[in-house]
Design a binder for these strands. Structure first.
Length: 882
DNA sequence: ACCGCCGGGTGCC
DNA sequence: ACCGCCGGGTGCC
């Protein structure tokens, strides 16, 4: 059936992706430079009417920015452009003749448009409002755009003085009016944030949650509850005499803007986010618990006269608290749509009442398959039996809405959701969820337009994004995040572009500040470094290893060769076209740094045939390694079927897919679904099936010498053993073969070792971890582990030493490795040793990591102009000192 | 909606 | 009259 076929699904959504995908994400499309806000500039504006306003409820007054959104599926006109106000309520449409000219240019990514209504009140027309549409384009396209617009009879007004962006225009206007400057406003918001930043601990309902929470978890719970129930204004809104203004768009309204019920929960891994979230959900079972808990947390919420009778009645009945707290109003407001009628006048006992009447408070949890079981385990571990009813949803479409709403939690995966997205019958599209939680949201890749869209279109009152590695490398980009959270006006692309993205790209401080305020308001992130859970300190030591003479000679020779190859690519401008070859060469250099045994024994040159493509194609071992490196410990799903890939294919542009998926896709369109570069079957390289354990063991026996890296490791391990023979260590490497090579020298040195790698099934892994925990002299002291095999949530706290045999491209992956050991339950001081080969590519990888970390810090979650997971041209120069 | 546009009714001076 | 002109109905995309 077509609905079941992920490839058909992917292709069917391709159009949507074409017009919505962020051009910034096309980091590899170097040969046809993508449009990005940094490269666009204001050509001028056209005046067009917003028509049909009598049909829509969206209001607009005075001078105000509006959102312009393409509506290609409009049945009356495929060129339709709808106009939204700051609350994302539709105001009208751009009049047809203008839309007919602009829509094709917008769809082709030739222009970006932003709308501003100069003065809505002055016209006083009930049917239309004039609007300035500011047109941005790349400089190369500007003449073509100008003639296209003028040729169609539209007047493109380009005042040479109008060289600032729309958002800057707003600032100028603000200042002219003598209002607060935007900077002052930010300051105010900042103070507000820090005031609210003081976290109040909150106890979970003990009749649902049986575990005692750590203080930081109680504080996290307090924050979650506060974010769901507070009525404070969202950032960038101000109240003036009972009316409200958005200071960024200048939108005025008498209707109080809806608070943002939810946000980003981005605590470090290992701080117990799952338990905290379960505690949040537990409150849904019992309204009074929340009421009294929140009362004691003394949340500062404005008073209201329209008190919910049902709440005060409930409280009176139970006699827990008679005071009409701020809760009452919020409760009513949250629930009024669906619960008002039901709740009034019932006299059941409180908890039961909540359960039956608020029984439809169902939380949808969307997570990757890898953490599906974590939720189940945590439920068993931390909640009383049968208190929270969980339904595991695998896409069974026979389930109707009513059935699912009987549960407290519906647990599903991103892929299930994405697959169901196209099915209009799916209950997932009909249910109004009480709350939606996206777990490990960073794993949603941007290419997965269908995933982003499926979660964004979910109907829910509260929306949460949960991640332990917040947007470090920007997969689920910030705009998608705003869209999912329905954070108006940032959830409208043109607003996002003009208010944040463009200022940011232009290096305008306002973009950054806005972003910071935004994130500070809606997100919570605590790191373990702050001593939240009294975790013993962690020391990270970087040990620089000198290569032996033999290693050094070979390395220098290879590096020289690599440089000359890269220079050829760069000069020819086809570096990105041969990306997989580039990675394979980098891989070889990295292997030499660790152990020559990782390379073929007859290694004389990187390029035995002077033909890199042939080399890659004919060297399955190299390819396999390449695939491993590309996966780099990250949970990797085929972006087409969104599942762990089978028969991995690597493209010339170094993207990975299932063989079947990419072949089907190519059949429809000869382009890479990820970077959209041209792609044919001859650009696909397959990796051989994973070799079994026994295949590799033979290799190690032929090995006689110990590499510099391994010697250094041995020295550390023996030193540690001399200090305390009971100390356990974990050695991480991303090369599975290396873990096998390590076995012999470690055994020879008298260590009792265990190995944990990707070839083991779940049962065997659990066994290994359990065995590793055995204390004393009988127990093993060294665990050789691949990160991939040590899935999230795995606990290696039996160890207190971590050795990272080589640097990872992505520093977040290293953090993840350390977190296996440095997490709740760790009693010892933790020492982490990173082994880095001196004067080698490894040193420069570390350099690159620092730069990436800096980028991530600049705006928590602020992604750079590119997806930083990929190695760019500049990165390559750094790596090779070129 | 104080417009434009459409289409039916109508038709010398 | 295969026109012009009149005036009512009507109205985003």
């Amino acid at each position: 059936m077509e609905d079941e076929d992920p490839v058909s699904l992917f292709l069917s959504l391709d159009n949507w992706q074409e017009s919505h995908a962020d051009p910034d994400e096309l980091s590899l499309a170097q040969d046809s430079p993508p449009q990005s806000p940094a490269e666009t500039y204001l050509l001028g504006f056209v005046i067009a009417n917003i028509v049909g306003i009598q049909y829509y409820s969206g209001t607009i007054s005075g001078r105000e920015m509006v959102g312009l959104v393409r509506e290609p599926l409009n049945p009356h006109d495929s060129n339709a452009i709808k106009v939204l106000n700051t609350r994302t309520v539709q105001v009208g449409h751009i009049e047809r003749p203008v839309a007919a000219v602009l829509a094709p240019l917008i769809d082709a990514h030739t222009i970006l448009v932003e709308g501003i209504v100069p003065n809505a009140r002055a016209t006083g027309n009930r049917y239309k409002i004039p609007c300035q549409i500011h047109v941005f384009s790349r400089i190369e396209a500007s003449e073509a755009v100008k003639s296209a617009i003028s040729g169609a009879g539209l007047d493109l007004i380009s005042d040479s003085d109008v060289s600032f962006t729309l958002s800057e225009a707003m600032v100028v206007k603000e200042q002219r009016k003598g209002d607060k400057s935007v900077d002052e406003i930010f300051k105010l918001v900042d103070e507000n944030v820090s005031k609210k930043g003081a976290l109040e601990p909150l106890e979970p309902p003990k009749d649902v949650i049986k575990s005692e929470l750590f203080v930081h978890q109680k504080e996290g719970l307090g924050w979650l509850v506060h974010r769901e129930n507070s009525d404070e204004l969202p950032p960038f809104w101000e109240e003036k005499d009972g009316s409200y203004v958005n200071v960024l768009t200048n939108y005025h309204t008498d209707v109080r803007p809806e608070p943002l019920r939810g946000g980003v929960f981005a605590d470090d891994m290992g701080l117990g986010k799952t338990l905290t979230l379960l505690s949040l959900i537990a409150f849904d079972k019992c309204g009074s618990a929340l009421a009294s808990a929140m009362h004691s947390a003394s949340l500062d919420v404005e008073k209201s006269d329209e008190m919910g009778e049902e709440e005060s009645g409930k409280k009176g009945k139970k006699g827990r608290t008679s005071k009409k707290g701020p809760l009452s109003r919020k409760k009513r407001k949250i629930g009024d749509v669906r619960f008002d009628g039901n709740v009034k006048g019932k006299s059941l006992s409180l908890c039961e009442k909540s359960f039956s009447d608020f029984g439809s408070k169902t939380t949808l949890i969307v997570c990757p398959p890898s953490v599906f079981s974590t939720w189940i385990t945590q439920l068993e571990e931390h909640t009383w039996p049968r208190k929270l009813k969980v339904y595991m949803y695998y896409g069974n479409r026979t389930n109707d809405v009513g059935e699912l709403k009987k549960y407290d939690i519906v647990l599903t995966t991103y892929s299930t959701l994405a697959t169901e997205y196209r099915c209009s019958e799916s209950p997932m599209k009909k249910i109004e969820w009480w709350r939606v939680i996206l777990d490990e949201a960073h794993l949603i890749k941007n290419v997965n337009a269908q995933q982003s869209r499926a979660v964004t279109d979910l109907i829910a009152q509260r929306r949460w994004v949960v991640t332990g590695t917040p947007i470090q490398n920007g997969s689920f980009d910030l705009f998608s995040l705003m869209a999912f959270l329905r954070f108006a006006p940032f959830s409208v692309k043109s607003h996002w572009q003009s208010l944040v993205q463009r200022p940011l790209a232009l290096g305008n401080q306002k973009g950054l500040s806005r972003l910071q305020v935004l994130m500070a308001t809606i997100s919570l992130r605590r790191t373990k470094e702050k001593g939240l859970i009294g975790l013993p300190p962690k020391v990270i030591e970087t040990c620089y290893v000198e290569l032996s003479r033999e290693e050094r000679e070979l390395y220098d020779k290879m590096e020289g060769e690599a440089k000359s190859v890269f220079r050829c690519y760069i000069d020819a401008g086809n570096m990105m076209r041969n990306y997989s070859a580039v990675l394979s060469i980098l891989l070889r250099l990295r292997q030499i740094c660790i152990d020559l045994a990782l390379c073929p024994s007859d290694l004389k040159s990187l390029l035995p045939s002077h033909n890199i493509e042939a080399d890659v194609t004919n060297n399955p071992e190299l390819l396999k390694k390449m695939v491993e490196v590309l996966r780099d410990g990250e949970d990797f799903d085929c972006p087409i079927c969104i599942s762990p890939p089978t028969n991995i294919i690597i493209t010339r542009c170094a993207h990975l897919f299932c063989q079947a998926c990419i072949l089907k896709t190519l059949h429809h369109k000869p382009r890479c679904p990820l970077c959209r570069g041209p792609l044919t079957q001859s650009d696909l390289f397959s990796a051989p099936p994973e070799a079994s354990d026994t295949d590799d063991t033979g290799v190690s026996s032929s090995k006689t010498t110990t590499s510099s890296k391994v010697s250094a490791l041995l020295k550390f391990l023996m030193e540690s053993r001399n200090q305390n023979p009971a100390t356990k260590s974990v050695v991480f490497s991303q090369f599975r073969k290396m873990l096998i090579f390590l076995e012999k020298p470690l055994k020879d040195a008298g260590f009792k070792i265990l190995r944990l790698d990707g070839s083991m099934n779940a049962k065997r892994r659990t066994q290994v971890i359990e065995e590793f925990g055995v204390p004393g002299h009988d127990g093993p002291t060294v665990l050789l582990a691949s990160l991939k095999a040590s899935g999230t949530g795995i606990n290696l706290t039996a160890a207190s030493r971590v050795y990272l045999l080589e640097p990872w491209w992505n520093p977040a992956v290293e953090d993840q490795a350390m977190d296996r050991v440095h997490r709740i339950g760790q009693k010892e001081n933790v020492k982490i040793v990173r082994l880095i080969a001196r004067n080698s590519i490894e040193e420069r990888i570390v350099e690159l990591q620092e730069r990436k970390k800096q980028l991530a810090r600049e705006a928590f979650g602020g992604r750079g102009p590119k997806d930083r997971r990929e190695i760019g041209l500049d990165d390559l120069r750094t790596l090779m000192s070129m």
